[in-house]
Design a protein around this nucleic acid. Structure first.
Lengths: 102, 102
DNA sequence: ACAATACATCAAGATACCTTGATATATATA
DNA sequence: TATATATATCAAGGTATCTTGATGTATTGT
């Protein structure tokens, strides 16, 4: 119940839905990728990523000074269904253009 | 997108999840059934029912002075998946005992 | 070692949501 | 017709959530 509400709560925000779809579409990205694509300040992006991670949608992997966020794998069926449903939504996503030099 | 957020928002509340599961389990019930089962004041129940209805989970049918709320039928697959997921949750639901004499 | 970069976290203000109590409406009963 | 019942809606207060700007931490480059 608590876990379910956390999952739902993570989805209850337009910015997070877009970030989730953005990562689902573009694969592993770092925080500054999202920051520059969405034109939002870093603390805001970082907070939303944490919420999506804590809700079981994302994983983080640190590489040097970058933190790469990706869709958690494997993903349970319910969250897969949700991602699919989100992929059907009409939303204008910003374009992805890598900003980091690994 | 807007519609999706409304659907998710309706689920983002413990009381509503319980009400939804209660109706899913017990079939069509009137407001006072839920009111007495849950021990919550009428305006509170009424508000939550409206939110669930507006989000596409419930239908209302008036009969005399009672309003019977039931799971919308047919229900799209995504909302069906959600109901199934909610049915798996551990929650202590109050017992149903009809309070209205139709 | 020092400076810069990438990210996380915190406090404060703004906004949205939930609960309650009061009031409104509509139907049934006496 | 008057009263009681079932439900809906509104305003006000409390609580949670979002955004921003500031600060902290770790890693890279000079």
């Amino acid at each position: 119940m608590e876990n379910f509400l956390q999952t739902i709560g993570a989805l209850n925000d337009e910015t997070r839905l877009k970030i989730l779809r953005f990562i689902d579409k573009n694969g592993a990205v770092c925080v500054c990728d999202i920051e520059s694509a969405f034109g939002m300040i870093q603390s805001r992006i970082s907070r939303h990523l944490k919420i999506l991670k804590d809700a079981g949608f994302l994983t983080v992997e640190r590489q040097g000074r970058w933190a790469y966020y990706a869709i958690r794998s494997p993903l349970d069926r319910f969250r897969q269904d949700i991602l699919k449903e989100i992929s059907y939504l009409e939303m204008d996503l910003p374009e992805f253009k890598g900003c980091c030099k690994p």
